[in-house]
Design a protein around this nucleic acid. Sequence first.
DNA 1: AATTCGGGGTT
DNA 2: AACCCAGAATT
Length: 385
Amino acid sequence: MADERGEPRPERLRDRPVRLPDRPDRLTGSLLRWYRRAARTLPWRGSLDPYAIWVSEVMLQQTRVETVLRYYAPFLRAFPTVGALASAELPAVLARWSGLGYYARARAMHAAARTIASRGAFPDAFEELRELPGFGAYTAAAVAAIAFGRPEPAIDGNAVRVLARLCGLRERRPAAEKTLRELARPLVAAGPPSEVNQAVMELGSQVCTRTAPACLHCPWRIPCRARAFGLQGEIPASRPRLARRPLTWAAAVCLDGRGRLLFARRPPAGLFGGLWELPGGEVAQGIGTADMARDLSAALRRSLGAHLTIAEPMAEVTQRLTHRDLRVLAFAARGVPPRPRRLPPGGYLETCLAGRAAAIDLGLSSVTRKLLAVLPPPASMTQIC
DNA sequence: AATTCGGGGTT
DNA sequence: AACCCAGAATT
């Protein structure tokens, strides 16, 4: 129709092949000029220590820079080298991770540290890194590139947004990641891989933001396909929303004569795996506190081998997780002090007594910390022995 | 490809 | 309240 009359067909984004909109060396050049001027000073930037870089990359998984800044230095002070991390016990590592979330990261990092330490050398190639626990496609590429200068494209959430917009890619995650890894390969080959990768991510966090990107300050504003078509708001397509279901836990406040609380260790994997908590468990939705107290008593008999009388609830806290609305009610308990024996499957393997001051050295989730913070002072509570 | 893993800052 | 953040492992 329009073509037959010789008029140019209106160019549409989806008609275009998905490829880099300019030569890799020119894209990398303008990007690096911007990065060297605008990059934030961060503790792990410029580090030459693969271990320190690795720690930063793991902490930064699904976690904002501002949050990681509170954990990074203390963790490195506690575990300064791969050998130190490998020699540490997992509970001590989880204690340093307490509040950071996604605790499988700490478990995997600890396991990988033991492998690396026993091997004697830090793996320096993508394929070797990728085989270690906790090294997915992103982290293996990031460590290979940033610590060892390998030309591997590290595609995180920022890179997906930046590169998808640059190239006008309409695919959504996670499919887009595979496509973008290949599109980004020429870019990291055209400059220092460490800087190119970090520059792409920095651009995503400072300029090419999810909402209201600062296109006028972008070194790629001219070649950017999304900007050319006014599609910055459509690219990349957002993921389907997740349903958040309610989850209610009842926990027992068991106090000994010295004001110490009874803690129990959760199973090594799964939600809050390996962390300490006030012993208890899930209760059905919509039941009253009297029924909760009865269920909690039964659960503790199963999981702890303890016969405790559960009184009224004394505190309640909530925590919003990605896929759960968690609500924890704490019940005062009194009765026979728990005497861990041989426990049935699903029972707690370990318990400990700790005062609230000592509890800061335990691996606790944020919701458990919240709970300890709102508990009444020990003097007002019933003792169990 | 879809879920399950935390927690919190932004909008 | 929705969205998503320097993702990985499991199903």
